[in-house]
């Protein structure tokens, strides 16, 4: 398990895979596969956390991995899946400002740009000693920026939410690789996210109408809060 080159290779593989999922988030048109891509991305990050926790022997990273799996691989995708089922939109075909191909090219440029600027910010000695962590930081920030690209270049609300979630994954990656965020903050972020998803669910389903109509809709779509009332 401590074979350095094996771990090194694995980490590199995960890095590339994470960015590929981000590229898919920018370009895939079908909503269900977008969701699966996000799930995969989160799973990859969890794997990364596990790998790092074994290398460094830190339990916190393991906890982060577990938390990520529970919240981002299971809970959040489940809720979003529910929304998708109900609003019966399967595809997100429109793009604002950037077509998928150009936004992927833009993200290549972004990665290089982030690499250069981070190279200036963090001391170059640091980049030499821990190149893997440095690259991890670069990829974390790039992932965040690519999430932002998703948010403004795609039109459907659910995709935008996924973009936001992917941004958060970027923060997580940055945290894993560079700063070691305290565990409690990680937990807070997760809770934040879950609340965000709840809100989004409510908003996507009912922002366009009055409270009464909204209540009606919630009942009609039998979302979770109302489910018990509805149940005969």
């Amino acid at each position: 398990m401590t074979d350095v080159s094996f771990v090194d290779g694995l980490v590199r593989f995960i890095f590339v895979a994470v960015l590929i999922t981000a590229a898919f988030l920018l370009s895939t048109r079908s909503l269900p596969s977008l969701l699966r891509t996000y799930q995969l991305q989160s799973l990859l990050l969890a794997m990364l956390a596990v790998v790092f926790s074994f290398v460094e022997g830190s339990a916190v990273l393991l906890w982060i991995a577990i938390l990520t799996v529970v919240s981002k691989v299971l809970v959040i995708p489940y809720f979003i899946g529910e929304i998708q089922e109900r609003i019966s939109i399967r595809r997100d075909l429109e793009f604002h400002y950037l077509a998928p191909a150009s936004s992927i090219l833009v993200s290549i440029a972004l990665i290089i740009g982030v690499y250069l600027s981070l190279g200036n910010i963090l001391s170059s000695a640091y980049a030499k000693v821990e190149p893997i962590f440095f690259i991890g930081a670069v990829i974390g920030i790039s992932l965040m920026l690519m999430g932002m690209l998703v948010i403004f270049s795609r039109t459907k609300a659910i995709t935008k939410v996924l973009g936001f979630l992917s941004m958060e994954n970027g923060v997580l990656l940055f945290g894993i690789c560079v700063t070691e965020l305290p565990f409690i903050i990680e937990v807070m972020i997760m809770i934040d996210l879950i609340i965000l998803i709840l809100l989004t669910t409510i908003l996507t389903v009912g922002i366009d109408s009055t409270i009464e109509a909204y209540n009606e809709k919630v009942r009609q779509y039998s979302l979770w809060t109302v489910r018990e009332e509805d149940a005969p």
Partner: peptide, 18 residues
């Protein structure tokens, strides 16, 4: 294709920079 291109560029990037 552009995703494949992205992939191969990333490969060089990771190999070269990390």
């Amino acid at each position: 294709f552009i995703i494949a291109f992205f992939f191969s560029v990333l490969t060089i990037f990771i190999e070269v920079f990390a």
